[in-house]
Structure formats: C-alpha cells, structure tokens
Design a protein around this nucleic acid. Structure first.
Lengths: 313, 313
DNA sequence: TTGAAAGCGCTAACAG
DNA sequence: CTGTTAGCGCTTTCAA
C-alpha cells in the first residue's frame, strides 16, 4: 500500500500518508532487504581514504550511488590485508550488492577470497590474472615509460626514480618497470643509487630523496617520484638543501593530485582522472549487478595525460 | 550452536565447523540484525570526503569502528543539505546504531530532522544550541583570535582575511569573528577590502586573493586564510604576481593539513588534530550507544596549536 | 542438553 | 481491488 502501486485513489493515498505521519512510521530497510534478498548496499574497500586519488574516486562513486539510492559501506583498510579480508567477509555477510576493491595490492589470498564470495566484484587501480572480475586501471607502465622518454628527450641522463612498494603492482611495480624499460630502450644503464624506495607518504619521499643524494655522489638532473606525494616530499628535501627547482634539479610526479598545480614551483605530473574513473566504475558496477551486462569485460584502461609544469625543464 | 556457547564438546565444535565449511555457510547479518533489532552499522555524514580534515577524521573513526566490528555507512554529501536529509532518513531506515554528522552547516531543518530520528547522534566540527546531542569541536573562534593577535604582535597591521562561507558556523563564522574581534580589541579598524570570501578550494582561495589585491590599493602585509586550502591558493596567486613570501607578504593558514609542512615556503597554520578527535568521537559514540554514558555531555572542545613556519614573519 | 517453534518487519503470492 | 498469509534467516524461548 505504501509502495505506491499504479492505481490507487488520491483519497486513499492521503489517508495513508496522514496515518504514516501520525504513527511516525518508518520502513525497516533491513526487513525489506531480508525478504527481497538484495540490500542496496555496496561495499567499498579502500587502501587509504586520506590519499587524494582514492578519496576523489570514492567521491565520484558516492555521487552516482546516491542517485541510484545505493548506500556505501566503507572498508578503509589502511593497507592492512587482514582488514581487507574481514571487510570482504563482512560485506558478503551483509549481502552487499557487490564489492568495489581499491586496495594497493592483490595477494593470492585476495584472489581466493574474492573468487568465492559470489557477488559482483569490481577491481580498481589493480588487476590480477586469476581474478575473475573486471578491472578498471590506468596504463601505469606506459605513462611512466612516456615520462622517462620525455625526460631523456629533454636531455636528462641522471634520472632518479623514487618507487612505491612493488607489492602494489600498478603504482609500484609497473611504474618502476616503465622507468627501467625506458632507460634501457634508450641505452641508459640503471644506476642503483638513483632508484630508491618509499611508501605513499610525503615524509617517506623526503627520506628517500635524502638517501639518494647521499648514495649518488653527484646530484641527478631530475627526480621522478612514483606519486605526487613522494615528489612533494622530495621537493621539500631538495629545497632544504638549497637546490633550486628546476634550476639545479627537475622534479616529476605522478597522479596530479589537486595541490600539485598550486605548488611553488608547480609540479609536473601524470594526470589520472580518478573522478572520471569513479563515475565509470559506478556505471559499470550497475551494469554488472543488473546483469544486463554482456559479462565479457576483463579490463578497462583509462587514458593518462602528461602535464608539464614549472618543476621540470 | 554456531555462536560458540560456553559448554560444547570439542568434538561437536569440530563437526559443526567442518559442516560450515562444506556447505559454505555464511551468516546473514541482515536477518541477525532484524531479530536483534540493532545493526552494527553507523552512518557517517561528511560534507566532502576529499577534504583532508574530514578524510583524516573518518580514517580515525574507521580504525576504531573496525576494532569493534562496526561498519560505516558513508554519506558523502558534497555539502548538499538535501542529500544530507536523505542520508539521515536512509540511516534511520536501516536502523543504524547512530549517526555521526560532519556537515559544514546545520540549518533549522537539520535540527528538526536530527532531533526526531531517535537514534544516537554525534555532531563534529559544528554545533547548534537546539540540537539535542553532544558536539565535538575545536575552539575555532579562539584559535583565529590567537593567530590575529600574534600577527599584530609581530607588527602586522594590514591583515587580509579570506573567509569561508559563514553558513559554516565554525570554519566560516567563528574564524571570521575571531579575526574581527582581535582587530577590534587591538584598535585596528576592519578594512572591507581586506576581508574576502572563498569556498573551501584552493582555486577559490586563488581568486579571492586576486580580488583582495585589486580592491586594496597597496598590498597587505599578511594574508590569513580560513583554511589551508584557501591559503595555498592565495600563495599561488601571490607567487604568480611575483610577491615573495614571506619577504613581501606573509601567509597564514588554518587546519594544518599534511601538505602544509611540505610547501615551499612551509605554511604557518593552526593545527587541529582531526585524527585524535576522530578516535575520541568513536569512543564517545560507543559510550552513547552502549548507554553506559552519563548522558550529560553537551560539548567537547579539543585543543588547537599555532604552528609558525616559513610563510610568516 | 537439544530441538522445535515463535516472531522480528517486510514483500510477494494468492485468495476473496 | 483488497486483505490475508507464508516465509526471508536468524535468535530467543520454551518444551522435551
């Protein structure tokens, strides 16, 4: 009655509505979901909600989901895989309509768990051969390769790279591989002192920069950070040591987070439009759950764009 | 049986467990929640999840909630009050254990809706006299007053302020009031050209800075942005116009977001520890829902700290 | 100690 | 077109 069937007289509607108000009636969505066996909730697992690429992605997701009346159950794992496993179990137990996974790594255990939980899954910014679900990614390898090629074309030879952990296949392994291969293809030998590792924080980029300067006897002509956060930390260290950017040394980042264009000097970077990928992810997800979907998509690759700014010459 | 009662033989446990595995049994938390009439889900309404203070707060919340096995239903409103109302209804209908509200403004309609929805509510970074629930805030008025007093003590007289929208009582109205009152108390008359308005974005801070420079015939000796984002935008504009910071003009921010210490020059700011307030909020929330709570707290005020960095002299 | 039955609030199906 | 009923999967209660 309450669920406005096609042909009900206006009078009845009025009476029902007033009764609803008087009795302060509220539907109980749990009961509804129980009987309909579908919950209008989607579980979103994110490695770190404070990381701009991820929060922007979720922002986009949530806009679309809200339009469709679907709620987001947030699983913020802080990159702890055990938490991620628990979230997967929790979301399955709550009969979420599906799971959107944006963790930073996918282990064999992830694959096992995700493959058996029997609800639609969408993986973002990662992929895995044995994972039986569509993935939305950027071409991190090519983007990184393109940047290094560009740097070489600009005359740079001593190109320092600060990598993320390679457990992260996309932001870690593939970006580093792009760097290595571009060097190799252009006849430049990898100098181990010029390849340092960091986490995803600015602080960590700062320390990696410090290490590189100490290990490498001279200074590199450009630093390529695997994320903007890392590059920002590196810039800070270089500034403290009174190197001028880009006078003495150029800096390149990756992600093009909002602050990068406002830095002084503004940071060159690779733009990955996480907002757009979030909107797309939501739409793809709905196609999957509404099963109008051809069910043939394995991977969707989004465009990247190199953005040259003051920090690099 | 599955819910491990005290006295069950090891043998039975084993048999149950193997049966559980074989049949791939999974609890249905919706059914459980329906019969127990409590859902282990909390609704979190946030004005903008991409805004660092908010994402850091939610990061902290989610850590604590995960420990207690409580899920977060995310209501990212993008500051749209109608979405916020819908989230309130949705969370009530889902019988959330409670709602944590971090919107940027609280209207009369918010008060009405929140006061009748009859589940525990916690308001963060805002408050409202007629809202019948505890609030966790920072003393935005005092913090802003303190900054301006400090600036005056340092010899500044032409102090520009870029405000957020005053509908936001705390980040908007109170920070501006602190600015106005500190000027007044120190015998400095407010110059309308030195008070500009912006939204919460860097871009918006940039534009407000442009406007101020154009309206004010000379240049102010310091710019105080109501948020770090605004201050970052202002710095960018000043840099483009080739003013040196802090040589020609000092800049002060508010929030101390992670990037502020890494800027060049590093940005002076007011530290509000949103991570700590998030942890506290979660704990207070549990006390409220477990109703061990004395139920007498009206407001909790967290400490702020002024952080002087290179951008201000 | 164990098993059966009632009922949480809702919807879908069916009977009137 | 309206009202009744069964049952979603679980916990709690009560009987065996």
């Amino acid at each position: 009655m309450i669920n406005r069937k096609p042909n009900i007289s206006v009078d009845v509607q009025k009476r029902v509505n007033s009764a609803v108000k008087k009795l302060k009636y509220r539907v109980n969505l749990r009961a509804k979901s129980l009987v309909q066996n579908s919950s209008n909730i989607v579980g979103v697992i994110a490695a770190d909600i404070t990381n701009p690429p991820i929060s922007i992605f979720i922002d986009a997701l949530s806009a679309r989901f809200h339009e469709k009346g679907v709620g987001i159950l947030l699983g913020n794992s802080r990159n702890d895989i055990h938490k991620e496993f628990e979230f997967i179990d929790l979301f399955t137990a709550r009969k979420a309509r599906g799971i959107i996974f944006t963790g930073e790594k996918i282990t064999e255990e992830h694959v096992k768990k995700l493959n058996i939980c029997n609800i639609p899954i969408l993986v973002v910014d990662q992929d895995h051969e044995e994972l039986n679900c569509p993935a939305i990614v950027f071409d991190n390898y090519q983007a990184s390769y393109d940047v290094v090629k560009l740097l070489i074309k600009k005359g740079h030879r001593d190109i320092g790279f600060i990598s993320c952990p390679t457990e992260d296949k996309h932001a870690g392994f593939l970006r580093q591989k792009g760097y290595r291969d571009a060097l190799f293809d252009n006849g430049i030998q990898l100098n181990r002192a010029l390849l340092q590792y960091a986490e995803f924080t600015m602080e960590s980029g700062y320390k990696a920069m410090e290490k590189m300067i100490k290990n490498f006897k001279s200074i590199p002509s450009v630093i390529f950070g695997a994320t903007d956060n890392i590059a920002i930390g590196a810039m800070k260290y270089l500034h403290e040591k009174e190197y001028s950017i880009p006078g003495d040394i150029s800096v390149f980042g990756f992600d093009n987070i909002p602050v990068s264009s406002k830095l002084i000097p503004s940071l060159s970077s690779v733009e990955l439009d996480h907002y757009k990928s979030g909107i797309f992810a939501a739409d793809l997800f709905f196609q999957m759950t509404d099963s109008k979907f051809p069910d043939g998509i394995k991977k969707v690759i989004f465009k990247h764009k190199i953005i040259l700014r003051e920090s690099c010459r």
